[in-house]
Design a protein around this nucleic acid. Structure first.
Lengths: 106, 106
DNA sequence: CTGTTGATTCGATATTTTTCGAACCAACCC
DNA sequence: GGGTTGGTTCGAAAAATATCGAATCAACAG
């Protein structure tokens, strides 16, 4: 129950469409992905819709995104750096991420 | 508990991205959508991965797709005609459906 | 009219996902 | 060393989904 220096990430070839779509199908998770569009973000800096979300819940959201291969989650000082895996997603599912990110927010 | 002549469908403007992504995030449902790509199909004719799926389960899959606005489900003689709502999806979420349908199957 | 076929709905159960506190750890500061 | 901060993991409970039999109906065939 630690804070492992590095978490497992699927390789590009392992990306699975249903898992990716599922991870993106939650508004809260989708919102995180939208924030990462303009570049990596420290986990502490990414704002959630739910104001006082417990950290275990927040961590779980990130886990779903990471395990689907949508974000990379790396240790960075005391915290965590989140990066959108745009290139991997584009290589495996061309056009998918842009279509999702360009979709109307409401 | 009948077979109503017409089922409710969301309007184009009501299409909701998380709901669409969720509906597409199941392999069985995704497979149905792929089959509808080349044109409408009678429900009885669309083949399922699970060979002897109970009809109530099959009906539920169609309900999720219909309520997300991905397919249209209309009475057609004794059965049901399924149509992919490509134009509505393209109008609301440009590029999304093509990206999903062009993604590698495995 | 009777029987068959194709399909929806309800209700109950099973399974999956989400939520969240507690325990834990590593980095940083004093 | 001791305290604080940011974050993962476990485990249990809650909520959402999926599964499927039974009841029901409409269209069609004879």
């Amino acid at each position: 129950m630690a804070t492992p220096a590095n978490l497992p990430h699927p390789t590009r070839a392992d990306l699975d469409l249903p898992s990716v779509l599922f991870a993106l199908s939650d508004p809260e998770r989708l919102d995180i992905v939208r924030q990462l569009r303009s570049g990596p973000l420290d986990m502490a800096d990414c704002s959630l819709r739910v104001p006082d979300m417990p950290k275990s819940t927040k961590s779980h959201l990130m886990k779903v995104l990471r395990e689907a291969g949508i974000i990379r989650n790396e240790a960075n000082g005391r915290g965590r750096r989140l990066t959108l895996r745009s290139e991997d997603l584009e290589a495996r599912f061309p056009g998918l991420l842009p279509a999702v990110l360009d979709a109307p927010v409401q």
